[in-house]
Design a binder for these strands. Structure first.
Lengths: 104, 104
DNA sequence: TAGGTATTTAGAAATTTTTCTAAATACCTA
DNA sequence: TAGGTATTTAGAAAAATTTCTAAATACCTA
């Protein structure tokens, strides 16, 4: 999947707003779009980028397509950031490149 | 400061590589640049974007400028993502908009 | 001061992203 | 089937990003 796509998806304010809107419940493409001052086509473009990044699930029902948040991808990003930051609390290392092995 | 700048900074693979390189030690602009197949000017452009996003500290010494990671901004991003994900373990809510208050 | 190394700034070209309008697809209802 | 609603796709225009070369700045050494 790749972090490139995921971070790029998160880099746009419209797309972050969409994700926030989906925090507690799924919403249809139209309902999502009604919160923005842009065409449905543009909203669809943003939804597609989020979907390709793995950040959204979609369910088709009747005439609608409902989107919801894929929190597992959110967690993957958090893990990447946690590794970047380094392990501040425990002192344990989790696969980053601390110099422990080169010490002696 | 704003998440827009921070997430945009994180969205580029070159810039994520730079941050990863700075995980355990500071490096000069030149040393950072030597890891990439691009001009110093381009590296400087990327460093500037990371700096404006608050992700880097810089220290001038002699002829050099040393860059290091600002982990507090990394943590801010993690907090934003944790809020987006929702509190999976504790069940407590931390300022998101769960519907608790509208229940009765 | 003169010359050298490290880094940034300026300006332009190439690429990517964002947005729109118009048209297409899909599915539902009568 | 005909007509309607919801959403996406296509193509083009506008804006932003990334990269380069060339020049500027800054500071160090002799």
């Amino acid at each position: 999947m790749g972090f490139a796509e995921t971070f790029k998806a998160l880099a746009d304010p419209v797309r972050r707003d969409i994700l926030t809107m989906l925090r507690d419940r799924r919403m249809s493409a139209g309902e999502i779009g009604s919160h923005f001052d842009m065409t449905g086509a543009t909203v669809s473009y943003h939804l597609n980028i989020l979907k390709k990044a793995g950040l959204l699930f979609e369910e088709k029902e009747k005439n609608y397509i409902f989107y919801s948040l894929n929190t597992s991808i959110v967690e993957e990003v958090m893990v990447w950031l946690a590794d970047l930051r380094g392990n501040t609390e425990t002192g344990a290392s989790e696969g980053g490149n601390c110099d422990e092995k080169n010490k002696g």
